[in-house]
Structures are given as structure tokens and as C-alpha cells.
Design a protein around this nucleic acid. Structure first.
Length: 543
RNA sequence: GCACUCGUAGCUCAAUUGGAUAGAGCGUUGGCCUCCGGAGCCAAAGGUUUCGGGUUCGACUCCCGACGAGUGCACCA
């Protein structure tokens, strides 16, 4: 419909002798009284035409040729908006199209199978995932869902490093706890990992080996055991949120395959790096950055920048046409270096989308809970899931824009479990399922050829209009990565349904009307189910 | 000090990317089930969009400046 009107308006402008590269934008007006779609094109062009916007709008409308069976009303309003109102026939047509492809409704192929990688979570295995990781995890998984729904070929990837200083400290933390467990008097440094899980790992080793590991180095069994156990836990946590990565990419492989060396040599060849004070520097100043950065320390060890760049080069070499990176705001300063690096090596950095989400502030009532993996005073993602459930966790992380800081009040989240917005959505779905069950009991099962002409109540049309917005909402969210818009949209669908349910009785003596309304219920159910599926939230038949 | 993200109802957050009268939930107040699920529906109260300038037909949105919050600014990741 949008395309149709755009084309008609463009042709009207042409017949007025106006050529402009100004796109004709059609939007849904905020107020229903202003019709179904509106355009501000007359206001946009009026100035160049030296005309009064309203008069100009009238000229455009005068030349407009539109199928009257689709559009019932065209009016000029306000400072020069042109408003279009669609016919009931048009909406009935669209509704029967929806009913014909329920499961597919909302899916599209605009992505054209584009090879896409989404990298998210990417926490090193030094401890359980925190609530802070949770936001990125859920966001990344849902972005992946959206891209799949819009026809992208998506790979979910987790990048980690088990070779750095962090991991050495982790191994040594386990070693010291182990020594303590077998009765040695050793001091445990303050800046080591304090969590209980370190003691658990140590005691597992004690169970298996007794005191036979007393002289084992930290980097041996201790580190290996810690990495294994912690990674298993991380994967289990993610799984409980419905998140499964296809690839776990180890930073180490970049060294083993010589990719780090390659990138280093490439920079040198291009004259973009130099040695100074025993270190190798990247000429960020020549790449649009503020100052040069070290990429290899004077110890010969690379800084994180070099592998990060090499990793992204590898993503390009694997043939990804869209590369989505999801970081917390604490990594805000690292990505410009990476982007400048890949660009300098001749790759199109526009294919890399870096999405930064703001932090979650955990509140215990009015008290802020400060989080630190090193110290043990954090709330794990597991704790949170156990307390409020996976659906609530996912929804809470998705319902707000990623650029805004999120306050997650544990007391409220627990307490609210009855009045939670996610239940409002699920309730609508369960309610429809209940109507279906009841209908079947009464022998009024939804038929295959409902007479949609019988739908004429305003509440019915409000609901139909809302349902038909689903595909464009999915596409919009996939393009902008603004997932909260989908969550809000589904809230609106649920509201429209509850209103319809309240004012229009579905199961009645009138068999034909019952059929029509059951069809509308089915359409609503499909949108809710599909929408919740994108968000990764269950759509229960009963609650 | 510099950079990024923000500042909207008592609280948590939206606002179709510059559009018409700034909207939801929670909380508060008052109405709705002899009837398909009351985890629902309807209504009321609640705002100088942190403050001050600017840009234009039109600003919560863009620009400049203050103030406030969070996060970064390593030869840590």
C-alpha cells in the first residue's frame, strides 16, 4: 500500500511538472482521526515551489489518481499534511492474506540470504555470567532472530581468550584454593578471584587427585579445569535463556594460524606501524584517530587491539557481508581502533555494525548493587533466572532502548511477577487458546472460509490494523536494531485484543459471526506467537 | 580535563528518526463479571520534556553553552 501511494504521488508530482529527489515518505499518523497514512511531501516541497503548503497539497491531490476501492478518503489537514484513509475492503483483503500464511506472517526475504555474523557475550571464562552480560546476551540473540526473520543467513559467534593475564590469575587462584583445601598454609591475595566457585573447582580437583597436584603449575591442570568448568556453566546459563552459539572462536587460533603475524606485516608494509621504545605502534593519527596506539608491547606480547583487528579481518575472509558486534558500554573506546584497522587493511568497515548497550544497574529496593567479577559481590545471571524466570529476564532486557541505562530492581521484579508486562502478552495468547478450546467443545471449530464481511465493529478494525503492522515492524526493528519497538508493538496488539474481547463476544448464537471472530482470534494468536518467538519468549496455551 | 550514552508524569520508560493535542506500565482515586480466562476492560488526577540560547512553517528530537548521572580515556581485556 505504501509503495502504491508513493508511486501515485510521484506520478501526480510529475504531472505538475515537478521533479525532485525528495523521497515521498508515508507514515502512520499518531492520531487515528488523521487517517491511516499521511505524507508531509507538500510541506517539504512547498518552499522550493514558493507556494503555500496547503494550496500546494491541494494541487497534488487534484492530480492524484487512486483506486477508490482501496482508499476511501483523501484530505488535506493541518499545515499541509495529506491524509489517506483506507477502505474496509482493503483491510479485509489483507486480513485474509494474513490468515493464509499464519506461520510465515512477519517473515520476509529483504536480507536476500546475506551472510551475517552476530558476535555477542564473548566473556572470557573467568567466572559465571553476570546480569550485566545478560543484557548483551539477550540482545544479541534477539538481533539474530530478527535478522533470520528478515532473510539473513545468521551465524551466532562467541569470541574468547583463554591465554591472557586474567586466565593466569584465574589458574593461580584455583591453585591456591587447592593448596588450602589440602591443608597448606598459603595466603590468598586480595586481587585474586574471590568467588566461591573457585573453591568448588579446587575441591573437584582434590576429589580427583587428592594432594597429588601440590607441585602442579597454575597454568597446567588448574587453569584447564577452571576453564572447562566455567565454560560449561556459561553455556548452561545461556541455554536456559534459549541462547546457543554456533561458533566459539578462540583468540589463540589467530596466533596458531599466523593471522596475527600477517596483520602485523601488512601494517608494516603499508607504513602504518613503527617501532618506538621497544614497542610497535599503530599510526592511528594517520587513520583518523587522535593518537598512536601500541599494538605490540616491549615484552613482545600484543595488546588486545592487534588480535581484535586480526579477528575482524578473519570475519571478512570468512565471507560475512554483515558483521554485527555487540558490546557493553565499557568497550566503547575499543571499537574505533578496530574499525580504523580493518579499513586501513582494505576492508569495508561499513559492513561492521557495532551495537553498544548501556549497563544494567541492579537495585535491591533503593540500594545500588555494585558489581565486580573479581570480588564476589555480584548477582549472577543464573540467580536472576532462578528468581524471575527466563521469559521475564528476556523481556525486561528487551523492553527498553539499548541506549538507555536500565534499572533492574530485583525486589520489584520478584514482587511484580503478577503484574509484569510480559504476562500481559502471554495472557492474551493464553486467552485466545482458551477461546479456541471452548469453541471446539461447543462444536464451533474455526472454519476455513470465514465471512470477514461480518467484521465491522471499530474494535475489530483497530485490531486488524494493528495486526497488519507486524511485518513492517519486524523489518524496521531488524534495520535499526531497536528491539524495544517490537516489544512495545506487541503490547499494543495485546491491548487491542483485550479491548476487542471485552466489547465483542466471540462465541455466540450467530454461527457465521462466530466463525469470523474466531478467524480474527487466530490472526491475533499468530502475530503474538510469531512476535514472542522473535523475542525468544514462550507463548503459553495456559497460564 | 577529553570522548561516548543519557536527562521526559511520584517511579520505570516510550515517542514512527524534524510533524498535528508528548504517550504506556507501576503507583494513586473511582467505576465494570448471572456472560468466551478479572493476570482483563473503562475513566480521572499527574508535564514549562534539567536549565539558557539558536536553526525553521514546526524542536523531546538538530546546533552551541551550562548543570547533573553512567561509562570509558594503559605497553589490562
Amino acid at each position: 500500500m505504501k509503495e502504491y501511494l508513493q508511486e501515485r504521488i510521484a506520478s501526480s508530482l510529475q504531472s505538475l511538472g515537478i521533479t525532485s529527489d525528495m523521497p515521498v515518505t508515508l507514515e502512520k499518523p499518531r492520531q487515528a482521526a488523521h487517517g491511516d497514512l499521511t505524507t508531509n511531501i507538500a510541506m517539504m516541497l512547498a518552499k522550493g515551489q514558493k507556494k503555500n503548503p496547503r494550496q500546494f497539497a491541494a494541487d497534488i491531490v487534484g492530480r492524484l489518481q487512486i483506486d477508490a476501492s482501496l482508499v476511501s478518503r483523501i484530505e488535506i489537514a493541518g499545515p499541509g499534511f495529506i491524509n489517506f484513509t483506507f477502505t474496509e475492503k482493503f483491510y479485509r483483503q489483507e486480513l485474509s492474506r494474513l490468515l493464509a500464511h499464519e506461520q510465515m506472517f512477519g517473515r520476509s526475504d529483504v536480507g536476500k540470504g546475506k551472510k551475517t555474523q552476530v558476535e555477542f557475550v564473548s566473556a572470557n571464562p573467568t567466572g559465571p555470567l553476570t546480569v550485566g552480560h545478560g543484557r548483551g546476551a539477550v540482545y544479541g540473540d534477539t538481533v539474530s532472530n530478527l535478522l533470520e526473520w528478515t532473510g539473513h543467513d545468521v551465524t551466532r559467534e562467541y569470541y574468547f581468550n583463554n591465554a591472557g593475564r586474567q586466565m593466569r590469575v584465574l589458574g593461580d587462584s584455583v591453585r591456591l584454593r587447592y593448596l588450602q583445601a589440602v591443608g597448606e598454609q598459603v595466603e590468598f591475595p586480595e586481587d585474586y578471584y574471590q568467588g566461591e566457585y573457585i573453591k568448588d573447582i579446587a575441591s573437584h580437583l582434590k576429589d580427583e587427585f587428592g594432594d597429588g597436584l601440590k607441585n602442579e603449575p597454575a597454568e597446567g591442570k588448574f587453569k584447564a579445569q577452571a576453564e572447562k568448568e566455567i565454560f560449561d556453566d556459561i553455556k548452561k546459563t545461556l541455554k536456559s535463556l534459549g541462547i546457543v552459539h554456533k561458533t566459539f572462536f578462540n583468540e589463540n587460533s589467530l596466533y596458531e594460524d599466523g593471522k596475527i603475524k600477517e596483520v602485523l606485516e601488512e601494517f608494516k608494509k603499508k607504513g602504518l606501524s613503527y617501532e618506538s621504545e621497544g614497542a610497535v605502534w599503530l599510526k592511528m593519527s594517520a587513520l583518523g584517530g587522535e593518537k598512536d596506539k601500541v599494538i605490540v608491547k616491549n615484552t613482545g606480547e600484543p595488546t588486545y587491539r592487534l588480535p581484535d583487528i586480526a579477528y575482524h579481518v578473519d570475519k571478512f575472509r570468512r565471507g560475512f557481508d554483515l558483521i554485527v558486534d555487540i558490546f557493553g558500554s565499557d568497550h566503547i573506546a575499543t571499537y574505533p581502533d578496530v574499525l580504523a584497522g580493518v579499513k586501513a587493511l582494505g576492508y569495508d568497515e561499513a559492513k561492521v555494525k557495532v551495537l553498544i548497550h548501556q549497563f544494567v544497574t541492579i537495585m535491591q529496593g533503593t540500594e545500588v548493587v555494585k558489581m565486580s567479577t573479581r570480588k564476589a559481590n555480584y548477582i549472577t545471571l543464573d540467580d536472576l533466572i532462578a528468581e524471575v524466570g527466563a521469559d521475564v529476564v528476556r523481556y525486561f532486557f528487551l523492553m527498553r532502548s539499548m541506549t538507555s541505562h536500565l534499572n533492574f530492581d530485583l525486589v520489584l521484579a520478584k514482587q511484580q511477577s503478577d503484574e509484569n508486562p510480559v504476562f500481559y502478552l502471554q495472557y492474551a495468547h493464553a486467552r485466545i487458546c482458551s477461546i479456541m478450546r471452548k469453541a471446539e467443545e461447543e462444536g464451533q471449530k474455526a472454519g476455513s472460509t470465514p465471512n470477514l464481511e461480518l467484521l465491522k465493529e471499530p474494535d475489530e478494525f483497530d485490531l486488524i490494523k494493528m495486526l497488519l503492522e507486524f511485518p513492517e515492524t519486524v523489518q524496521y526493528c531488524a534495520e535499526t536494531f531497536e528491539i524495544h519497538r517490537l516489544a512495545e508493538y506487541l503490547q499494543d496488539v495485546a491491548t487491542a485484543f483485550h479491548k476487542f474481547y471485552h466489547n465483542c463476544r466471540v462465541l455466540s448464537e450467530d454461527a457465521e459471526l462466530t466463525q469470523a471472530r474466531l478467524a480474527l482470534c487466530n490472526a491475533t494468536k499468530a502475530v503474538l506467537r510469531n512476535g514472542l518467538a522473535v523475542l525468544g519468549i514462550s507463548a503459553p496455551e495456559k497460564m
